[in-house]
Design a protein around this nucleic acid. Structure first.
Lengths: 197, 197, 197, 197
DNA sequence: AGGTAATCGAGACGGTACGTCTTGTCTTAAT
DNA sequence: ATTAAGACAAGACGTACCGTCTCGATTACCT
């Protein structure tokens, strides 16, 4: 009889606490030295692990970092405040805090750059991004049920209208992402996706 | 004898054709191997140039790439078709072509990643981005003069509402950027920034 | 109840066929890839054995190789042809065959190199070498009894005079070790160790 | 106009002082940690040199060590004391000192082991060995001119009769190489290669 | 018969050296 | 002073091997 995984394992099984140690070391080092400054040797040393143990689990630095991010993700709660506008503000305003902008979100361009050369990484990156979008989709669908959103509006594009400008500012234009900006953005998007005139 | 720049020059003057050769080699290689795969040695070899010659002119790979991008830019003409909607479509629809998406635009995440560690590069990146935004700003201001845009609307945010979602899709979510999407996007943004109800 | 060895044994006894398989795999691989190219992983894989099983029996690669050599040794018969000269030729001429020179004898320098760092290995190496010298000692002693050898001659040095030049040629000088050379060598040594003038 | 080497050199020439520094560091480390304990990283660090600089000049550790030995060789003076016996003692007795046996000579087995896998190294090793044999050859030829050596005696084999037993003892049999032994050895070899009875 | 304990194949583990690669600087002779 | 060529120091990369360890399964001995 077999377990559900269908995976017959011989030999010494991988030590799950090692995965944990590596991911923690990676996350810590990312904060300290950034993506480019991160070396696999440093991760191995910090985690008290051999380099081979890292390369046995991940193909390279990018996959490792992506996993470190994924593992440390705080699945944001889906806000439910009663109105589309306040739900969206509840979701997006925390992004204006310095902490949020200094954290994991900073690493996205490096991953996107690498993803251009590595379809596997690109796939994982898309999954990661998609994961973060789910709460917003839920908020919008709920609003649509209440009649606050144009029935014809594509949810994906609606999310892009919110997240896109914020990321664009953070990464490329350097314009500030502050509460006032987010509020204006949300107001404009609420108008854009509301029921047709 | 001195030139007007007040710059005292001794010895052999720099060969301007060398700058050109380096930038062309850089641009070619970027297309072939991407940003991460680009090495300064390869650029030097391709350009038939010593590495010192490159480092005498640029501070590093990132600045070089940024200049290669800037040099090869097609300063897009500011469209003037009579309406905000058709002006914006004239500007953004070309981005849906495969060529455009495979080209220089692909390199932005790598530059953004590096810019996080290098304020000088960040400054140059912002300038580059700002440069590309000017035509859209002009289109929007013209529309505002015609009464098509809310007088209170912040132009910068308006541009972010258009460019942000497109870049976000290209780099992170992997969703397609096709003519239908761009058209829907433009329609929604036109509604969002139109004169208040 | 105890066996005569005074060794109290509990648990599953060691499988003797496993020793054999490991030694055979080692000997085969030595011929194929040489001492430096030999890895314990490869021995384990070839023998169909876990690495721990090897390390349970030997302290390391060198001991293993030395045992593989010892196990595969063809204890050369002590020649007895009636004269010192023909006895010595009977013993040393086989060494001029390509097979002999390509085989185990080739591995001696690697073991000697390692022995310089490992007194235990050095001891085993000396025992191995001494083992091979015994037949020659017997030949010489027999000759001495017949009056063919100087009573004052040290047997050990006599053997060194024969084996030393041959090994030196094989390992270091690269000079050929052919039948003519061996014959001349034996003739000279017979003269050197013969009864004093 | 070209120099005699016929080698047209462009680019920065190799820095000869770097070769020196690397060889000195190698020689020092060999004494401290032995051949097996020697790492290329350690040589680079000690020499204040990048690893690539080492690999640009040598193919690996063995070639480097061999060059370090060759460079540091003290071309032993050819003794000329008037008799074959005393010339040979003048040459070989110094080998009985602990210093001599602990030094470069200790590394020969490791090199010989590697030479079995690398024809280029084997060639260099033979040249090194041959170089050390020259003085003895000269001593023997001079003795032959004086009538102390059998005109038919092959000089190479004569040298093997002296050096072979000494090396064999040092590397394999572990028997001592002390002044008394060397004296006996020389006496016996002098008898072996003297003019025919 | 059941318990105990060392064995087995498999392979993960920490550590460490390898040889390659890239970066940005420096050195040469020639222009 | 600049150029092309390429050597240089520094240090990260990903691979390989060593000798140890852990796992589940086996195989004897000893109650």
């Amino acid at each position: 009889m077999d377990d559900g995984s269908g995976q017959r394992r011989v030999g010494r099984p991988r030590d799950a606490s090692v995965d944990e140690a590596i991911l923690v070391a990676t996350a810590d080092l990312l904060v300290e030295v950034g993506f480019t400054g991160l070396t696999v040797d440093a991760v191995a040393a910090r985690a008290g692990v051999g380099k081979a143990t890292i390369y046995r689990r991940w193909e390279g630095k990018e996959q490792l970092v992506l996993d470190a991010l994924t593992a440390s993700r705080l699945h944001p709660e889906v806000p439910d405040t009663g109105s589309l506008r306040s739900d969206l503000l509840a979701y997006y305003l925390p992004l204006t805090e310095a902490d949020a902008q200094a954290g994991a979100i900073r690493l996205m361009p490096a991953l996107a750059a690498q993803a251009a050369l590595d379809e596997d990484l690109a796939e994982r990156l898309r999954a990661f991004v998609s994961d973060r979008r789910t709460p917003v989709a839920e908020v919008i669908e709920r609003a649509r049920a209440r009649g606050e959103v144009d029935p014809a509006m594509d949810v994906e594009l609606a999310i892009d209208l919110l997240t896109g400008p914020i990321m664009y500012r953070l990464y490329f234009s350097g314009s500030p992402v502050d509460p006032a900006t987010v509020e204006t953005l949300v107001d404009r998007v609420v108008r854009a996706i509301g029921p047709g005139a």
